[in-house]
Design a protein around this nucleic acid. Structure first.
Length: 801
RNA sequence: GCUCGAGUGGCGGAAUGGUAGACGCAAGGGACUUAAAAUCCCUCGCCCUCAAAAGCGUACCGGUUCGAGUCCGGUCUCGAGCACCA
């Protein structure tokens, strides 16, 4: 009987569906819980690509193992379904985006269902369901009530092409992350979430997470914590001052001027009559500059003298004040002390504007700023000190003078949370006639998106919802008329808490039952692409911490263990794309080779977290292995060799297999686990008899990677029920502990021969045996033995003169 | 520029500081077959060989060690992220 993947896969997919094999009873606390989460997909019109099954298969393998190990496994799937493509489709076709989105979801689901993934579909959610986004809105209201949501008129990144505002995080090199359209700065009323209030905890709690190092690093860099000193500079001849922030307070004696950001409130106040015109022009030009222009002029350090001077508090020296757009209004205090000798930016600015440079650390500053550690000079009491000592001494002095204090600054900015779009969760707020903000009453949630005649934003950037019918737009509550908020939430909103909803998706009284939340969180393993290493994960952690503060969740972090699957590249090693013509469609592979082959190939191709090129030859190799394993239980002579008696010839191979696969799966080292399965199957082919219990154990391990073939093999071995909840195989440590070992013998570190000795052999015994080896002898002859290194079971190294 | 990660056969990749190249792909050979495919078995880093032995080999240079793909210092290349953050 040959292996027919088509009929076998259909048969078992149907079986699992009908038997609800993977339905998780979340109320069953009798078993330990295991919550495995995939980053839910955006259901695009293109359908699934071969990258999706990679991460999904990884978590699926873990889930299948955990079920057999007696865990109660929650393994859900859902849809991150708000998003721009559906909105653009709606605008183009003047059709509601929901229909388009639902169609895509149906297609995705159908595709995913062919892959043998053990999802509990009764937990399925979609962020666009009002029953889901009711709670997205509810969380927003709680944030508003805790002063974490506010409106402000701020210069934002407005993208005329998309007709919307983008978060800083969505702007890359002055262009929109999605579409790559130009972005300009312009003031607009926006809802903002105060994520900066959580900056310290978002940073600190990274410690202790089982996450990839690089992702932790990216989060840290994004939060950008830095400790330094805030120094007060008094203005000469005026009863006012400004503060600067510096991480290099040790260089304070080398400060030869100060710079304010163009946005700094003191600029207008301090500017002299002579400089007024030049400064005003500079400031208004800077305001118009988009981020793109600011960065494209990177090397050019422009600025204008303000016509005012400040006093350096450490030595009383008078220094000029400039306004310059290399100083950011949004970081620190929006003002810096400039030390040209030891800061590259200040150096460039000082050279250009002919400002004095005072060296305060020893070293060469003739061509560029000297930023390394060195003894200080020209720094009075700090002379001779290194950076750390000088920092401490100067900070102490500033504190005594009342002119400085240690502070912590973060790069992280507040989260611009509103979008001028239709296809997002309506922000559950409204204004009265005086423009005062009111949250909508919680009992009116969800605030459902109204149908519109057209989904285009207005020309001046007003959201599509401003065209909603009055019945929606102008509600009357308790006799008072309001105007609804017409901004919607960004796509990040739903994904910031969806993992909580999976636990209890039908609940209409709460996000989820509190008892269930406490039991099931945190998520045990979260797998998804590294493209979400910063934004999604940071936002979700922020919301989680807020929910922790208001008592909804009981753990401080949502995702204990995180893993990123690497990209599947085209066969030519380049990223898959239509234009390169190297796209592989998973449907085609499921048809030609079967889902098991696709799963096996993707797991075997290399380490999960690394990029791997597609290879049709390797895919065929995967299929060949499945058939080879299948043959053992389906074809003569192998089936005739299966016995209830153990001939012991596979004892080592089998027990080692179980041990290796168990630990490798746990570590997500699927490629090496699979190679060990191949070794076992090769050993089976060489064996004279096949112990049935070993074959069964193998099939259990194998079924995690190739569930369809695994189920079929299990039934061929005479079992009626699904393999999914069979007991995970155990191994006998004694069977893999050998009494004799093949010991490598080297002379002067070079391997010369291998001898077989008892594991506990003494050095003398081993040396005697080694001396019998002609090969070893030929390297020892005529040399004096100087030293012998013997590591039992590992190596014998003879050092000769 | 800064921060992380990675460089191993023809290819994808294995290797707690201890026999480099497991496993797979590709290639070659054999068995089976009228034949082919499929299957099963064998070979497969380079160099030199009929063969064996020796020699050379984990991007490059150096170091530590009895012993380095693995640890340390430096260089180069590639990938990812950040980017005037004071």
């Amino acid at each position: 009987m040959s292996y027919d993947h088509g009929s076998i896969e259909k048969k078992w997919a149907k079986y699992w569906d009908e038997h609800e094999t993977f339905k998780c009873d979340v109320h069953d606390f009798s078993k330990p819980k295991y919550y495995a989460l995939d980053m839910f997909p955006y259901p695009s019109g293109q359908g699934l690509h071969v990258g999706h099954p990679e991460g999904y298969t990884a978590t699926d393998i873990l889930c299948r193992m955990k079920r057999m190990q007696g865990f109660n496994v929650l393994h859900p799937m859902g849809w991150d379904a708000f998003g721009l493509p559906a909105e653009q489709f709606a605008i183009k076709n003047n059709e509601h985006p929901e229909g388009f989105t639902r169609k895509n979801i149906a297609h995705f689901k159908e595709q995913i269902k062919t892959l043998g993934l053990s999802y509990d579909w009764s937990k399925e959610i979609a962020t666009i369901d009002p029953s889901f986004y009711k709670w997205t809105q509810w969380i927003f209201l709680q944030m508003y009530k805790h002063d974490l949501a506010y409106v402000d008129d701020i210069p934002v990144n407005y993208c005329p092409e998309l007709g919307t505002v983008l978060a800083n995080e969505e702007v890359i090199d002055g262009k929109s992350e999605r579409g790559g359209f130009p972005v300009i700065r312009m003031p607009m009323r926006q809802w903002i979430l105060k994520i900066t209030a959580y900056a310290d905890r978002l940073e600190k709690d990274l410690e202790g997470l089982d996450w990839p190092k690089s992702t932790l690093e990216m989060q840290r860099n994004w939060i950008g914590r830095s400790t330094g000193v805030q120094i007060r500079f008094n203005i000469e001849g005026k009863d006012t001052h400004f503060d600067v922030f510096t991480t290099r307070v040790d260089t304070l004696f080398g400060c030869t001027y100060c710079c304010l950001a163009p946005e700094h409130p003191l600029v207008k106040e301090l500017v002299s009559a002579e400089q007024k015109e030049a400064v005003e022009k500079y400031v208004s030009d800077a305001a118009k500059k988009s981020d793109l222009m600011r960065t494209s002029l990177e090397k050019e350090k422009t600025g204008v003298y303000l016509g005012a001077t400040a006093i350096n508090p450490i030595n009383g020296k008078s220094i000029p004040i400039y306004v310059a757009d290399y100083v950011l209004g949004s970081y620190g205090t929006g003002a810096v002390m400039a030390v040209p000798a030891h800061d590259t930016r200040d150096y460039a600015f000082a050279k250009k504007h002919d400002l004095p440079i005072i060296q305060v650390l020893e070293g060469d500053i003739s061509n560029e700023a000297m930023v390394d550690d060195a003894p200080h000079m020209n720094s009075e009491f700090a002379n001779g000190m290194n950076i750390a000592e000088a920092k401490a001494a100067i900070t102490k002095k500033l504190v005594e003078l009342g002119a400085g204090k240690e502070v912590v600054n973060y790069k992280l900015r507040d989260w611009i949370f509103s979008r001028q779009r239709y296809w997002g969760e309506p922000i559950p707020m409204m204004q009265d006639k005086d423009g005062k903000e009111y949250p909508i009453p919680e009992d009116q949630l969800p605030l459902v998106l109204p149908e519109l005649d057209d989904y285009q934003p207005t020309r001046d950037g007003k959201p599509p919802l401003s065209k909603a019918p009055d019945a929606w737009l102008k509600p009357t509550i308790d006799g008072k008329e309001y105007l609804r908020e017409t901004n919607t939430m960004p796509q990040w909103a739903g994904s910031s808490w969806y993992y909580i909803r999976y636990i209890d998706p039908q609940n209409d009284k709460a996000m989820a039952d509190p008892e269930l939340i406490e039991h099931w969180l945190p998520v045990d393993i979260y797998v998804g692409g590294q493209e979400h290493a910063v934004l999604h994960l940071l936002y979700a952690r922020f919301w989680h911490k807020f929910l922790y503060d208001i008592g909804i969740v009981k753990c401080k972090e949502p995702f204990q263990k995180l893993y990123h699957q690497g990209m599947i590249l085209g066969a030519n090693g380049e990223k898959m794309s239509k234009s390169r013509g190297n796209v592989v469609n998973p449907d085609d592979i499921v048809n030609s080779n079967g889902a098991d082959s696709l799963r096996l190939f993707e797991m075997f191709a290399g380490p999960l977290n690394e990029m791997k090129p597609w290879s049709t030859e390797s895919l065929n190799g995967a299929t060949r292995f499945i058939e080879r394993a299948f043959r053992l239980v389906s074809e003569e002579p192998y089936t005739k060799m299966i016995s209830d008696e153990n001939s012991h010839e596979l004892d080592y191979s089998y027990n080692f297999l179980v041990k290796k696969v168990s630990t490798d799966f746990e570590n997500l080292d699927f490629n090496t686990a699979i190679s060990q399965m191949m070794v076992f199957v090769n050993d089976c082919y060489k064996a004279k008899s096949l112990y049935k219990s070993y074959l069964e154990g193998f099939v259990k391990l194998f079924s995690c990677v190739c569930p369809f073939a695994g189920e079929e093999m299990w039934s061929l071995l005479g079992h009626k029920d699904s393999i999914a909840y069979e007991k995970w195989p155990t191994y006998d440590e004694k069977a893999i502990t050998l009494t004799t070992v093949k010991l490598a013998v080297s002379v002067n570190g070079k391997m010369r021969d291998v001898i077989e000795v008892s594991k506990e052999a003494t050095q003398d015994e081993v040396m005697a045996k080694a001396n019998e080896s002609a090969k070893v002898q030929s390297f020892l002859a005529g040399h004096e033995i100087k030293k012998i290194i013997y590591v039992p079971g590992r190596i014998l190294n003879i050092v000769v003169a």
